[in-house]
């Protein structure tokens, strides 16, 4: 097992290098001048000074080599647009908020999704089941921007529940964005758990366990739930990765100063170093989330260790 984990961890290093190379290559394809922010033309002298200052006058391979070297020393370089800030500052200040938002939404999805699905499966075809599945199907299908807009309209503007419309300060400000972001994965988890639980309940060994007179409650907790959680674990990695790296819409609507909001503006402003830095960071999140899942999976289902390297 240790060997498996060590191998998987080492494997992330070439992955990150490839991600840097890909992002670097793609960014270079984008036309646009990071220094021309308004319709005003930049005089040639000033353009030259700027290119020189940020090393953009060097050939691309030199820029890449320098960048990789800097990343290796955890220096993501200065922002080209936010002239007094380093990418490191931006990550340090904004990333924890995205992490918190994504993490809380993920927890919300797990904490409400799994019981919802489990109850649905155990009470299959009851009204409870219908209601729960109805809720999760709709929750999954409605785009998050509509959910967020409805939340703000009804829970803040029409009826005052004490939530602010925007920002990321006290817990009050976090409730609506977290629920708006977590609704879809919650619904997905509920459906997933319901489906696999129904399937597991049909299995022979469960029937045997029941026939042997094991107490029903114990059977559920030991066998059924445990088995049904395997697909949830598998789904959890990509979901967590997606929630942390994909909260652009929620961050925009609720004016949350996370990296998602920064990312879009940075791409549009051609702030190469910020885009590079944040992409590498987001890739690391996805990689780590996948890594954790693989390891968890290896623990839950030992067969995978041999097949997957």
């Amino acid at each position: 097992m240790t060997k498996f984990i060590v191998r998987r961890v080492f494997w992330t290093i070439p992955v990150i290098l490839v991600v840097i190379l890909l992002t670097f290559g793609l960014m270079r394809q984008i036309k646009g001048n990071p220094f021309r922010t308004s319709e005003r033309a930049i005089p040639a002298e000033i353009q030259r000074n700027l290119d020189r200052k940020f090393g953009l006058d060097k050939p691309w391979y030199e820029q890449y080599a320098r960048y990789v070297k800097n990343v290796a020393t955890f220096d993501l370089g200065p922002s080209l647009v936010l002239r007094n800030r380093d990418v490191n500052d931006i990550v340090k200040e904004h990333f924890p908020r995205s992490l918190e938002l994504g993490g809380l939404a993920f927890l919300f999805a797990l904490v409400f999704g799994i019981p919802l699905g489990a109850v649905s499966a155990l009470k299959a075809n009851s009204w409870l089941d219908y209601a729960a599945m109805f809720f999760s199907n709709v929750g999954f299908a409605i785009p998050s921007f509509l959910v967020a807009t409805l939340f703000i309209y009804f829970f803040v503007l029409q009826f005052d529940f004490g939530f602010p419309t925007s920002g990321w300060t006290g817990w009050e400000s976090k409730v609506l964005p977290v629920v708006a972001l977590g609704l879809a994965p919650m619904a997905a988890f509920a459906r997933l758990v319901r489906g696999t639980m129904l399937e597991t309940l049909q299995q022979d060994y469960i029937r045997t366990a029941r026939a042997k007179g094991l107490r029903w409650r114990r059977v559920i907790s030991l066998h059924v739930l445990r088995n049904s959680l395997i697909p949830v674990v598998t789904a959890a990695g990509p979901t967590l990765g997606f929630l942390i790296t994909g909260s652009f819409v929620i961050e925009q609507i609720f004016a949350i100063p996370g990296v998602g909001r920064y990312y879009v503006t940075a791409v549009q402003a051609r702030d190469y170093s910020v885009v590079m830095g944040l992409t590498v960071l987001l890739a690391v999140i996805v990689i780590v989330a996948n890594l954790v899942v693989d390891i968890l999976y290896g623990i839950l289902d030992p067969r995978t260790r041999d097949v997957r390297t």
Partner: peptide, 20 residues
Amino acid sequence: DTLYGLPYLPFAIIVTAIFG
């Protein structure tokens, strides 16, 4: 496995920017 590290939406955003 390597490509699995690519975050999907950020790359989609970069691609739209490339085409403008």
